[in-house]
Amino acid sequence: MAKGEISINNNNLKSRAAFLSEYAAMLMGSGVHSSRVIRNTKRMGEAMSMEVIISNFHKSLMLYASDRSSGESVNILKEIPSLPISFEINTNLSRLSWEAYDGKLSFDELKERYRKLVARPKLHPVVILILSSFANASFCALFGGTWYSMGIVFSATMIGMSSKQKLLSKGVNVFIVFALCSFIASIVASTAVIFKLQTSDIAMATSVLYLIPGVPLINGFMDMMEGHVILGMARLIDAFLLVLCIAIGLSGTMMLLRNSLLL
């Protein structure tokens, strides 16, 4: 932790509000839709006898907290970190807010639990790689691809997904990664066209679908339907740009193949 971190024993309004803002930013960063973030944080504030109002944006959030007994209030503006999407953090931190609300934990215990939950290890990248390759191959089957096409999609996803993991861990820009990985996966899948398989178009189409940003797409719609229109739009535009990058990578392959695509 940074040098200026508030000491755990300091139980005043400011430290409680700082903890809440970190909690809310962590939820937002892990891909939780806005109304859940607000509800969870308010519930947590309620447990610490604070009234909390939050204003959410795409990259930052503003939190106002006032103490019920003293009437003191504090405003905090917090940057939202860009973290990988994690449903596990979503689940565990939601549960933590209920535990706090039901009065099971003291503030120190709460902070400790929060640190432990956030530091929990993620699924191993190799497991994710294998599972998503199987998923994309089954996706190919759902669209009517043959077993050969499924095999090609499996290997295409494996190569594309592993390059995505490598590039993202090296800190390459996410848009470049998506365009590049879409190109890589579709060029591997284009072997189906070269071998003149019956369902080569399905193999080509499904090879890039592991990249589809499904979570921000659905979160964006949900935010908009729950009244967080601006944030919902921001999420949708974010997702749309990623889809555009996938399209750019895919069209790169299609430009190379041109005439052989229309069988």
């Binding site: 699924l123 599972l131 998503s132 998923a135 994309n136 089954s138 996706f139």
Partner: peptide
Amino acid sequence: LYDASFAAVAGIGFGAISDPPIKA
């Protein structure tokens, strides 16, 4: 059954990318 079982595999795999809790 064919359709449902492939959908199940696809759901698990795409879900794994977003790091869900194991028991989900």
